[in-house]
Each structure stands twice: as C-alpha cells, then as structure tokens.
Design a protein around this nucleic acid. Structure first.
Length: 728
DNA sequence: GACCTGCTGCGGCGTG
C-alpha cells in the first residue's frame, strides 16, 4: 500500500523532511489521500493551528508539480477574508513552493501594482486573493480572466464558515460560478474551517448542484481539556462604598492574567476602552510595566499590529482587551486563557475564541466568563429579574460543551448583493442581457431564492432610480446608467458590505484611530480612547479630523452597532435552564445566587405553566421561547396592531399603546393566520450597501427572507396561547 | 442589543 507521504511530489517530500516533522498528522494523511486519489470537492475541518493549510496544499502543489503540460495561467487559487491571513499564508507557502520553483502571488489592496502587473503578464503558481480584489480583477480585466485561470486545478476557500450565508459569502460563491463559466469547466473546491456547525449545510454551500459528492474530512477528537469558570457580579447596589463591577472585574483580570499572554473579549469597543483604561491604571498604581492593551477595529493599524507582534513573539507578557478583531486571523501563538466579559452573541464565535487557548499539547484551554447583573429592587424590570445575560452565558457555554454551534441561516434573497453582482457583470462584459444575467446569477449562481419575477423587479428598480444604475439599449442589452458608471468606477465599489463614515483621531501628529461620524464630539470634551484619556482640542468637520491632547479624565465614546441575532436553540436552552433546578458546577457563589433568583422570579411570574403574564393594567410579558428572528417578527405583527412592544431574548414586553384591543384577542387572530402587514410606514429597511436603489416592496421582501420569519407567526401565536400546534 | 472584513487607475514627481 502506498502511504500518503509517497503520493507527494519529490520537492514537497524534501520540504517536509526539512521541517523536521516526525510524521504527518491524521488530518493531513486523510486529506492527501482524498485529494490525490479523487477529484471531488473537499471540506477540511480542524481546529486553528491544526495543520489544515498543509493538508490542502501539500497534495495540490504535488499535482501541479507532476503536471508537465503547463500552458500558463494560475494553477491554484486561494481566497481568504483577511489581508493579514493572505500575507501570512503566502510566507508559509513560499518555502513549500521554492524547491519546485512555483511562484506564490499574494494579491490584495496592500500589494504593489508592480507585483500584480508582473503576475498578470506571466500567470503561474498559487494566487492568494481577497473576494474584493477578485471582484476588481473581474471588473478591470474581465477579458483576461480565461487566460489567467484556464489551467486552474482548484480553489481553496479559507475560514469558509465566515463565508457561508454572509454578504461576502454570497459574493464569493457568485465569483466562483462566474469563474467556472468563464473557463468553461468546473473547478475543484476545497473548503477549510475550524467552526462549521452543520457539515451537510457546508456541503451544499460548497457545491450546491452536487452536495452529496463533497467529501468531509474532520479532525478526530484532540480537543484540549477545558477549564472554565463563570463569575457573577452585581451592579448598582445601595452601598456606594463598594466598587462597581467593572472595577472588580478589572482587578480580577489584573490578578489572574498578569505575567502571561491572554485574550479578553469585552463585547464592544466601548467596553474594551473602559477595561483597558482600568487595567492601565492598575499597572501604574502597582508601578508595574504595561501588559494590558486595547485592540479593536477603530484603533490605528500601527497600534493593533504592535499588540499582535507582542502576543506573537511571546517575549513580554501581554493581554489584549479586544473585540472580535482577534477572533479570526493570523496565528498569534498560544494564549493561557480566554476571558469573555458579558454574554457572547453566538456559540460559533465563542468556539472560535476558545480555539485561541490551550493549543499546546497537554495544556488545558481556560475560559473565564464574567456576567454582570443589576441589583434588584421594587422597580426592576422583568428582564433584570430573569438575569437574561447570565442565562445566555450559561446556555452558550453548555451548547459549546455539547459541540453544537449555529448553522448558517439559509433562504435569504440577498438583493443588495444581487445588485452589486449585476453591476459587476455588466462592467466585466461591457453589457449583458437579462436572461443571461438571470441564468448566471440565479440558476447557476447563488441567488437561487430569486424568482424571474423578483429579478425583473430588481432590474426595473435599478433602471428607475434617479440617476439610473442601468439602462437598456435598443437591442435589449443592459448597460451602465450614469449612477452605475459612477459607482463602478470608484474603488469603494468592490466590497459588498456597508461601512460608516468616520473621523480620524490625531494626537501629537500621530493617528490614534477612528470614531464614527455620528458621535457628538466638541472641543473641551474628555474622551477615553486607545486605553488612555484625552481632551478634544479641535474638530475639523470638513477634513473629518479630531485633534486631542492628553487629559486626566474622560468617558469612552459610543461606537454604535446593530442588533445581534440569537439562534432559537440558544433561547430554548435559556428556558430549559429556568425550568430546571440543577446548578452548573462552573458557577461561582454569586452566579449561583443570581441563577436561583432568576428561577424563583420566573416561577413567581407563573411562567412555567403559562406563556403570557399580565404585569399591570394593559401590560404583559410574553415568553416566545424563540430566537431573535421569530421574536422580532411577532413584535412587528403586534406593533402593526397598535401595541407598544419591546423585544428581549425570548420575551416580549407588550403595552396597550394606542390599541384598544386585548393582547389575547390579537394573538388569537394571528394564530388563525389573519393577514397582517408587518411594516410600519417608517420602518428603516435600508440596512445593506445597495438597498438605497431598491423599492419599498423589494426591501420588505429582502427583510422577510432573512431578518424576519412571517411563516412562523401563526404557529408561534398558537404556542404562546397554549393551543395545540396546527396539523399541517 | 455588537463586532468584523475590503479597495484601482493614473497623474505627478524624483531618481538613476
């Protein structure tokens, strides 16, 4: 029998020996066999630093080397969501490809135009690119695409879980279809990930027309031991002499993380600033060198890279207080512990974060979860009483331990991204006809939920906005309109996602980072930024610049953001926790106390037997037992009937408002399937980049396909009312 | 009720 090693080309075998590897990892052996012996698409699922990149590239590069009939063109295409990942992988592949004299070409916004020009002139080897740069290639060099990619053997999609049903994911899938159509044959797809919730779904994503043929190679076990603790804190107590929870948590982090490398996820940029400020002060008070640094997307690249370098080289102990900026990305080495302040928004991201800890053999992964809950008094809201943040933290940790994580949400129309792709294809080809666009994007491509009628409406909307995005020539060919010309000719077009306008923050001539433009900032104000305190000297509205100097006090700015989407399974688990009486072993005494209080308040509100509790004249709490999408849909339906509604995790707070109607009667009519218009006249539905060019009815359709779930309404109302679920 | 990601072509100037 031939071993996996024997299947590899000589130069690759030499490279492996030069690395001093004693043997190949199991995932690599299985991947080499699958990729060398077969032709099917492959998903390689293994934890961070599990050797996935080599598992894919060792056999693929071997095949390229063995092929002696090269006619020119790139041999392999690697697509990743981050520039830093591309730079990192290019360096790793460089050595592997050197012996075989195969070029490795990193291609993103920071790569010089001369390197790109050379690669286009003589395309060979491995091209590593972002979806945005690939979009630019299609639009600026559309005619050259067949020549550049005619010999392509495979496309490797890194961190494929971040690309499943996101705007960028749909863009990438569309690009893959366009690539296959351009060269006239299918291209093998290899997906890499550490965090896939549902393998069958990932198969469908990777090859929608033949999902069954996709081979999945999953790393076996090998999960490090997990040590975890959840600490509870109470905010707003009567005793003003007690320090607030932020100070207590900062002190706890200071005492337990000092001297080692750690990641502390604080949940928002504002919290990152608060904790970084407290921890810096604690180091100064103790006359110790700084080792706690803030890290989030508004900080300057210079500052962020310095923190990453400190973590990676491992010489000085470093803790990054961070947002999801450090969840994904380049290898920053092993960290001792991952701290999570406040409930995370998804189990998938918690899993990804924990993947950064305990990777060295024999060392446990450590998760420190901190939960802050309000002190209860007579005026406390039900949401405070039920400790929803603590419950969500416990629910997510339990689901993590069970190996579950959120699958992608399917079924979305993605109309904003569809507009983007229509404009891109028209630019690429200098024009396109509607039936062909429909075939490329909706039949062969990823927009399969879009019917011919909806597609026609989208084209009409693009033609009717003023100035028009597209126009039609007398022979029916679709061309760019004035607005289409203007959008596609600017480099900001390539990304499908929206980005807000920002101010640049400057101190002593150096850029600290950026602030969202909707922040109220005026000279004389004190702010906390980059873990330090500043006095605003000057605000230049034209140049979008804020000049600051050092200050003694300050408050952190507000960075804004959108609502999270909590999955149904997480909310169900939260209710399950309220109805049980066992206590997870990883809770500290305060957290145990908080959980016990939540449970007793829950039963006092008569919830275990009923789903509606009347809390006053014309005021109710409704337990939906559902995640954000369904709960929000019911809130929209009740609002459209005149109620005032606030949403919480798995609950609604409903008030009569201008409705004279009884809540039970309203739910009854929803349960019977009565028609209801969900959108108030002022509902803001333009959430994505190309939404401003669509009509109200298309925007409503887009929202209903993704952020709302109208079909679930009758059965949700029935279960809230305690009626048997409908027989279908 | 939050976070993250990305970007071309070309003119102008200096240097060898």
């Amino acid at each position: 029998m031939t071993t996996a090693f024997d299947k590899l080309a000589r130069p690759i075998q030499r490279w492996i020996r030069s690395q001093g590897w004693r043997d190949l990892r199991d995932i690599q052996v299985r991947s080499i066999t699958a990729i060398s012996d077969g032709t099917s698409d492959v998903i390689i699922a293994a934890s961070t630093a599990g050797g996935k990149t080599e598992a894919a590239f060792l056999p693929l590069i071997s095949q390229v080397i063995a092929d002696e009939e090269a006619v020119g063109g790139f041999d392999l295409l690697y697509v990743a969501p981050l520039k830093a990942l591309i730079t990192d992988q290019a360096n790793r592949l460089e050595a592997m490809c050197q012996e075989a004299e195969l070029p490795v070409v990193p291609w993103h916004g920071d790569v010089s135009a001369s390197i790109k020009a050379r690669a286009v002139k003589r395309p060979r080897g491995v091209l590593l690119i972002t979806p945005e740069s690939l979009e630019a290639l299609f639009m600026r060099r559309g005619l050259e695409i067949p020549r550049l990619f005619r010999s392509l053997r495979a496309v490797i999609l890194d961190e494929v879980h971040t690309m499943l049903d996101s705007e960028r994911g749909v863009q990438l899938r569309s690009q893959l279809t366009r690539l296959e159509l351009a060269i006239g044959r299918p291209i093998r797809r290899i997906g890499l990930s550490a965090t896939l919730g549902d393998m069958d779904q990932a198969r469908i994503y990777l090859r929608p027309d033949n999902a069954a043929s996709v081979q999945v190679i999953e790393a076996q076990g090998g999960e490090a031991e997990l040590r975890l603790q959840l600490r509870g804190y109470i905010a707003g107590g009567d005793d003003k002499s007690l320090p607030p929870p932020t100070d207590l948590i900062a002190k706890h982090l200071f005492d337990h993380l000092r001297g080692t490398d750690n990641l502390a996820f604080a949940g928002s940029r504002q919290s990152v600033e608060i904790y970084a400020d407290r921890l810096r002060a604690l180091c100064e008070d103790a006359r110790l060198p700084q080792e706690f640094y803030p890290h989030h997307a508004s900080l300057s690249r210079e500052h962020r890279e310095a923190v990453e370098r400190r973590l990676k080289d491992g010489k000085l102990p470093t803790t990054a207080i961070c947002t999801s900026t450090l969840e994904l990305g380049i290898d920053i080495g092993d960290v001792s512990c991952v701290a999570q302040i406040g409930a995370p928004f998804s189990v998938a991201s918690l899993r990804q974060r924990l993947g950064r800890s305990g990777r060295r053999a024999g060392k446990p992964a450590i998760l420190r979860q901190y939960a802050i809950e309000a002190k209860i008094n007579a005026k406390s809201s039900f949401a405070d009483r039920l400790r929803l943040g603590l419950l969500r933290s416990i629910a997510m940790i339990d689901l993590l331990l069970e190996g579950w994580c959120e699958p992608a949400r399917t079924g979305a129309l993605h109309l904003s991204t569809l507009v983007h792709q229509i404009l891109s294809i028209i630019t690429e080809r200098g024009g396109a006809n509607a039936p062909r666009l429909y075939r490329m994007l909706c039949q062969d491509g990823p927009f399969r939920q879009v019917s011919p009628a909806i597609f026609a409406d989208v084209l009409r909307a693009m033609g009717q906005c003023d100035p028009a995005l597209i126009e039609q020539a007398s022979d029916g060919l679709l061309l760019l309109g004035p607005m289409g010309e203007s959008l596609t000719s600017h480099y900001s077009f390539y990304a499908v996602f929206q980005t807000p306008e920002e101010y640049r923050l400057i101190a002593e001539g150096r850029e600290l980072g950026t602030l969202p433009i909707d922040n109220m900032v005026a000279p004389g104000m004190m702010i906390i930024f980059s873990g330090r305190r500043w006095l605003v000297q000057e605000v230049d509205d034209q140049g979008k610049v804020i000049i600051v100097t050092h200050a003694k006090a300050g408050a952190p700015p507000i960075f804004g953001g959108d609502a999270g989407m909590i999955h149904d399974v997480v909310i169900e688990r939260m209710f399950d926790l309220l109805n049980r009486d066992d206590v997870p072993s990883y809770l500290d005494p305060t957290a145990r106390e908080l959980l016990a209080e939540a449970r007793s308040d829950f039963s006092r509100m008569q919830f275990p037997s009923s789903r509606i509790a009347e809390i006053g004249e014309g005021a109710w709490i409704v337990a939906t037992h559902c995640g954000t999408v369904k709960t929000t849909t019911l809130a929209f339906a009740l609002r459209s009937r005149g109620f005032t509604v606030q949403t919480f995790d798995g609950f609604l707070e409903v008030m009569t408002g201008r409705s004279s109607c009884d809540l039970v009667a309203a739910l009854g009519s929803i349960a019977e399937g009565a028609e209801c218009h969900l959108f108030a006249a002022d509902a803001n539905l333009t959430t994505e980049k190309f939404h401003p060019y669509l009509t109200q009815s298309l925007l409503e359709m887009d929202a209903l396909s993704f952020r709302l779930d109208q079909l679930s309404l009758p059965s949700l109302a029935r279960s809230v009312l305690g009626l048997p679920s409908e027989y279908i």
